[in-house]
Write a protein that binds this DNA or RNA. Structure first.
Lengths: 340, 340
DNA sequence: GTTAGCACTCTCGCATGGAGAGTGCTAATC
DNA sequence: GATTAGCACTCTCCATGCGAGAGTGCTAAC
């Protein structure tokens, strides 16, 4: 069993790049002519055989060229691809757009997903950051009409939750503001779990508000983050799905069902870095012909989301990783800068 | 040019129903055997020829059965389909889910889109209601840190907008609350355009807040409503897109680009009813092999959204119209009931 | 007006047969 | 031993042809 010599690595690299670009199996002649490898096609074929024995290449059928295997892509990503950053001008363009946008976590997630999807022509998923532990910053009660008030809760990270609350009896806005002030003294700065311990109120209406508040918080932390999905059309435009309709359908089903946990298993995320999951490494069977490039962002346990790219295994890993890395770090920086 | 006799209408109806179900051209034998029409296949063929001359049927090729033309579907929808309501048990199931959900416009839109898409296996678009004229109900300032406050604006329809506002100088929450109280006196109950006239403040910080407020309102009313899209997978699963990859791609592009105005031209919406746009009646060329079933909901000019269903022209119009009608009326009822 | 019979047309599936691409093997060469 | 030229081999792809099947339109009889 021969090792992966330098020349073989070079050939593998050429095959990956060429195949990513053309989506057609790569033959020895192309490698020789187009890339000027100083060896005859016959020699290159020898090397390709060796690479196939290593499990890094595959042949769709006897007389087609070679195609990288999942293992081949893995080798490419690990050892050949390098760690080039996004070109500075692209960085600047992206950065500019973020500073133009409204300083909103959800807005940023939208923007990031759109940029990522358009840049790669693939499926992008961005989850806005969620804190594990919701901490109340402030609370307000607004009278809508005689029977109905709106409870507005501002969380520490400037997120706003709201809930309609039926009232028994008429309350003027002034009464409600007073009640809100009293409640704020008790709840502001507290987390959901701290609140649960200290729910004792003299007034029935205040008691009700407190219960509503804990209800909202409980519901909110149970709710899955509304993941932004972009680039369905681009994904469907990939040549692999032009014929093979079923696998495209499977993927869309996965996305439609909001089963994003299966697409991006949060457990597998390496902190502070970009993870690449290639083909059959993927736990979800629908994605075993796909690769996922994903990076978490946000601080450790508290406010975290992720930026993910989903495409066929034949994707531009260099560009994908660079873009995902830049976006995740930019999102983190924006959060820091604005909400820090 | 023969008229559309009763028997011909019956045959057209059978062809529509059969084709909608099987997606295969319908022949005279099928009509005779499966539907027990009291006429021989030869006679039925005669009638089908007449219907083809009327432009209501088409032949994919010489020796296939017939398929309804766009005009044929139009005739079916207009004269043959009837106006059956959704079965009461389905109504009850849907209703139940709405009352379970949080009383939020956006939440309802999500729910409606999901239900519609799943019920028909097609693409559903639901726009949450947007009021033309934004009216401020209440405003609040929350101190996040020394340099940053959060401006929270509650609109009359209980929608909440927010914006980060940088501060020059330190303000305690008490100061901000006081400022908010002063501002509320000036802005609450006002629309964006009314505010624009009356922006005069003594204090520089208050002036800034007022400007921020009008900015938010301007931005918000310029922003397109975030339309809920569901059922991509179901749509792609339709037999028409199994082969014809391009048109599926075109449709997804349209949806991805947020070009929902082209999918659902708001101008064409008939108030208080369900509109059906069939095939080439559609202004967007990407949708000329699709039909759109759409109903607006909400009160006249003020708070309005729509419920829309997009599918191939071969869709179950009866079920589609009934579901869209029920959902739009239910959404309107929910709005009335909760926000009245 | 309706119907049976029949020839006709068109699609679909399948087999056939190059043409082309790319390989693996062998034997000669550096 | 590594490299290379030469060549037979294999497999896909595409165009062609053919038969089966489906459904029609036409004609003539009822």
């Amino acid at each position: 069993m021969a090792a992966v010599t330098d020349r073989r690595a070079g050939i593998l690299q050429i095959i990956v790049r060429e195949y990513v670009e053309t989506a057609a199996p790569v033959g020895s002649r192309t490698i020789h002519d187009k890339y000027g490898v100083p060896a005859s096609p016959a020699t290159i074929r020898h090397e390709m055989q060796a690479l196939e024995e290593e499990g890094l290449l595959e042949q769709p059928h006897t007389s087609a060229g070679r195609v990288p295997s999942d293992l081949g892509y893995r080798y490419f990503v690990e050892s050949l691809m390098g760690q080039a950053d996004l070109p500075v001008d692209e960085q600047a363009t992206i950065r500019h757009q973020f500073f133009q946008a409204a300083p909103e976590l959800d807005e940023w997630a939208d923007l990031a997903a759109g940029l990522l999807a358009r840049s790669l022509g693939l499926l992008a998923l961005v989850s806005p950051p969620r804190s594990r532990e919701l901490r109340v910053k402030h609370l307000e009660l607004i009278s809508l009409n005689d029977l109905l008030a709106l409870l507005v809760v501002v969380l520490r990270e400037a997120r706003v939750l709201k809930q309609l609350v039926p009232l028994d009896g008429a309350f003027a806005q002034a009464d409600l503001s007073l009640m809100a002030a009293r409640l704020n003294e008790r709840v502001s700065g507290r987390t959901a779990s701290e609140l649960r311990l200290a729910t004792d109120a003299e007034d029935a209406n205040e008691q009700r508000m407190l219960e509503t508040l804990t209800g909202i918080l409980r519901e909110e932390s149970a709710r899955e983050a509304a993941v932004r999905v972009e680039g369905v059309a681009g994904m469907l435009g990939q040549p692999e799905y032009r014929e093979d309709h079923t696998s495209a359908l499977d993927i869309m089903n996965l996305v439609d069902q909001r089963a994003t946990e299966r697409v991006v298993p949060m457990g597998s995320l390496e902190r502070g870095g970009v993870s690449v999951v290639i083909g059959d490494e993927n736990p979800a069977f629908e994605l075993q012909h796909c690769s996922v490039v994903v990076a978490p962002y946000g601080d450790q346990a508290d406010m975290s989301g992720y930026v993910a790219l989903v495409g066929p295994t034949r994707m531009h890993y260099g560009r994908g990783v660079a873009t995902v890395r830049y976006l995740s770090s930019l999102l983190e920086e924006m959060m820091e800068r604005v909400y820090g």
